[in-house]
């Protein structure tokens, strides 16, 4: 990707998502100009591992980057995005965009003068993209009943920020937002939501089921959880319409099946879905963002889409809290 318009990428946040993004940037041949994290130890190890520069402050990183890639806990997104926009830098930001609608709106407003991409990565998973294209092409007719599943295990690092709803928005905002966005991408805006959430008596396991009614009339059942035994992460889509049906489940075999004697495997601290041996969706997402920023082309998924997905997530959280259906504006 080096060339006349080569852009320097700076990664902010060197935790799990920072690692995933660094690998994705490498996969698409982009060079990471440097990283910053408020954790100096983690930052230095990250810089060493990815052979990049470790900046000791965020302004210093901004001075040395054309695009910042924000991979920090959600609660910090707003101030980082605002500072980047102020410095005239393009922004790529992990999902969810923010924790409140007001913050998201302020971020979008602040980024009027720069490009602002929110990593709604599910839209870059090949099976989800392909299904979207089939639906958009009318292959199932008018969407009617959408079933989406995303159930993983409790993140294995006990002090992880995801557990803190004030930092992550909780499972509904952090995890289920993917499928809320996907349902909206397939069949349009949401009219109302209703949800039930169950918590473990001890520990952080939880399980949520949501029914959405879309303005188009379609209905959706969206299942999310940190509820399975460590290492188990199941996703799936089942999209029915007036003229057809599309099914996919992560239970399906991958293009490589291996048989080894059983061994004790270490479980990744956070479950991240993979697409088998196909292109890494994070690489596809970052390539798309990079190329659009470079060329000035519009993003396929906009910050406004990310805002709408947040709005649905917050409505779902409100339904959980009140036990009532919640209407969207």
């Amino acid at each position: 990707m080096k060339g006349e318009c080569y852009m320097r990428v700076g990664i902010v946040g060197t935790g799990t998502m920072g690692e995933v993004h660094a690998a994705a940037w490498r996969a698409i041949g982009a060079e990471v100009a440097g990283c910053f994290s408020s954790n100096p130890q983690q930052r230095k190890a990250f810089a060493k591992q990815h052979n990049t520069h470790s900046f000791s402050s965020y302004p210093e990183l901004l001075n040395n980057a054309d695009v910042v890639d924000i991979c920090t806990p959600t609660a910090t997104h707003k101030s980082l995005v605002l500072a980047a926009a102020q410095a005239g830098k393009h922004v790529i930001c992990e999902k969810p965009i923010a924790l409140t609608v007001e913050d998201a709106e302020a971020m979008i407003e602040a980024c009027r003068g720069v490009r602002f991409f929110v990593g709604m990565v599910l839209r870059f998973f090949p099976q989800y993209r392909s299904a979207k294209q089939l639906v958009a092409g009318g292959r199932i007719g008018k969407p009617a009943v959408l079933r989406l599943k995303r159930v993983s295990y409790v993140p294995q690092n006990p002090d992880a920020w995801y557990f803190n709803e004030a930092l992550s928005g909780g499972i509904v905002v952090d995890l289920m937002i993917h499928d809320f966005d996907y349902a909206r991408w397939l069949a349009g805006d949401v009219e109302r939501v209703y949800a039930l959430k169950t918590l473990a008596d001890t520990g952080s396991a939880q399980y949520v089921q949501t029914v959405l009614r879309l303005k188009s009339g379609a209905i959706a059942l969206i299942e999310g959880g940190w509820a399975y035994p460590p290492g188990v992460f199941r996703t799936g889509l089942d999209l029915s319409g007036t003229d057809g049906l599309i099914e996919w489940s992560s239970d399906q075999p991958s293009p490589l099946i291996t048989f080894f004697p059983p061994k004790v495997e270490e479980t990744a601290s956070v479950g991240l879905p993979t697409s088998g041996l196909a292109d890494d969706p994070f690489a596809a997402e970052l390539r798309h963002a990079y190329q659009c920023i470079q060329s000035g082309a519009p993003f396929e998924v906009t910050a406004e889409d990310a805002l709408e997905a947040l709005r649905i997530s917050l409505a779902v959280r409100k339904s959980v809290a009140t036990g009532k259906p919640v209407k969207l504006p």
Partner: peptide
Amino acid sequence: DTAGLLLITMSNGIQASIDCSWSRP
């Protein structure tokens, strides 16, 4: 009616969904 999604709560506190749709072609 040809499509239906339910979320139910049981007396023991367990939640359950039911998809009763005629959604297979």
